[in-house]
Design a binder for these strands. Structure first.
Lengths: 325, 325
DNA sequence: ATGAAAGCGCTAACAA
DNA sequence: TTGTTAGCGCTTTCAT
């Protein structure tokens, strides 16, 4: 069995409360005593038990991170960044995957609640109502969904869409299709709102589509039928699938149709042609979300929700080119 | 504040121990009482506090999962599978990324130890000695590294290499290069051992190399210098980089050189040519590792380490073809 | 600066 | 079947 605070107390001839103070309020203990205790603790390999500590302090020093699908390449950089950022602040993080299932999401949040100081909800599938309800039990930060009264991290995909379309217009494109994402996706809605607001183009909105390679592949015919010269896809996976589908039908990218994706996932720069894309600040989102969450946690009852909107930017690669004559 | 066991006890007019039993040993309590307690608990939104429970039972129902790099596409499927499998067994999982730093790895394990029943170590960078030492405090399962006396999950990459080379030989290739991984990688060593043991080929071992796209790109010249007609790369990322490097030099894949990767990551089937690869059973590894770990946890002191070796298989796609005339 | 004592939420003998 | 009691490892008043 690992050493407890009592072992250390006994070995150093002081009371447990002194050992406790040595770790949680060092300035309250005589330097001499402190050093002795520290040395003995080191010797015994003592580490404070965080769970036990949490019982009295109410702070677990754990965070929950809930995502829809870990294996979607969009998430790992976010998870990595959030986790690294949390570690610097002495927090551990539970990662849970809901498999896109709202039921699982809810269950997970409930069982996690007691063990964490706060939860990071990424692209939640739960209803607003449900989220607000759960928010009474534990501080939340929501990523990629707008929720009144809750701390939120948004990526400015609306502006990203704008940049992408401007880029296409510069290349001479006027007939442009937007390959929408899943129904009810906040991101997808943002994109179409932004696109619709732009002057000088003829916009076809195609969808909803599954946000996967297959979704893009399946949309190839619809894209051809729409008679456009350029496409902005909901995400890179779909864009890649679309390029594949067009290729199968003998349509060259960007020769005959230009394609832009969103996310800037790794595969996007590995495929050929390399994908032009709207880069999402996933790492920054992870860090920011942790910051906001820890802010909430620190504030306690007086917590006031914050909104962070992170900039996106366009990465021009090889899947976009001048409009064909 | 969320409801505690005491609130439920008070509201249902029974003692806390009865409430406790209702949840942890339902058969010991009168059905009538049980239902009443359950109803009231439900009403109050009571959920047992796992951390508090852990204090007395010694079981946290948490697992630690430590990986070298979450954003390496190899890991997410493993994490996802492990996490899902753990959830079914009512376990939560802490995920931590060491950023390939042994120091961080050790620190992480130490701080996590008290909060988990066991730790999953994936492709550890720590020395064997250090791991064995830490293993005294908490049950471990090691993935992708052979460690005597510890439960281990291995993927049979040796056989995978064999399959890949046989495939190449069938296509007529005789001069084959092995693009090695990082120095000291168990996987890399397995591959070269297997390759060396094969008859009828002229093998060049090139490396060590960084296990990244860039590592493959940088190895393109060495491959050309080796005058081979086929290459087996340490992983898909390197294979993809190599294809890119060869392409830049005007060398066609598979026209002039065939390339095989290892891992079967998503980008591999998105690039062109689609990558022939040795598929690693990452999901199965995640599940198996959790099983072995839970087995250890359940066994307590009498625990006996197990070794699971998971089969790999070859996926033939477009980056391999007949040897050029 | 340190010790004594109570208590966090829960479980686990032991009685009754 | 249920209640009583002690205690898990730690923090936190309150004394001293």
């Amino acid at each position: 069995m690992a050493a407890t605070i009592r072992d250390v107390a006994r070995a150093s001839g002081v009371h447990v409360s002194t050992v406790s103070r040595t770790f949680s309020a060092p300035h309250l203990v005589n330097p001499e005593t402190r050093n002795r205790v520290l040395a003995i603790a080191e010797d015994l390999g003592y580490r404070p038990n965080r769970a036990a500590r949490a019982l009295t302090t109410g702070r677990t020093h754990n965070l929950g991170l809930i995502v829809a699908d870990i294996s979607n390449p969009f998430f790992p950089p976010l998870i990595k960044a959030a986790q690294a950022h949390a570690r610097l602040r002495d927090y551990h993080v539970f990662v849970a995957d809901t498999d896109e299932d709202p039921q699982v999401e809810e269950e997970l949040i409930q069982t996690l609640t007691k063990q964490v100081d706060g939860v990071l909800l990424c692209s939640p599938r739960l209803s607003n109502r449900a989220i607000e309800k759960l928010g009474e039990d534990v501080p939340f930060v929501v990523v990629n969904r707008r929720l009144k009264g809750m701390s939120t991290v948004l990526m400015d995909v609306g502006n990203g869409a704008r940049l992408a379309i401007e880029h296409l217009m510069t290349l001479g494109h006027r007939r442009i299709a937007l390959l929408a994402g899943p129904a009810g996706s906040w991101t997808s809605r943002e994109m179409s709102d932004a696109a619709r607001a732009m002057d000088g183009i003829e916009l076809s909105i195609l969808g909803p589509n599954s946000p996967t390679e297959h979704g893009g592949l399946a949309a190839a015919d619809a894209v051809l039928a729409a008679d456009v010269t350029a496409v902005l896809a909901y995400n890179d996976l779909m864009a890649i699938g679309l390029v594949e589908g067009l290729d199968e039908r003998g349509v060259e990218v960007p020769g005959r149709i230009s394609v832009v994706g969103v996310d800037d996932i790794v595969p996007g720069r590995l495929t050929r042609p390399k994908l032009t894309t709207v880069a999402m600040p996933t790492e920054a989102a992870g860090r920011t979300a942790v910051d906001l969450l820890l802010q909430l946690v620190g504030a306690g009852e007086t917590a006031t929700p914050a909104l962070a909107t992170l900039a996106t930017h366009l990465i021009i690669r090889d899947s976009t080119g001048p409009v064909p004559p």
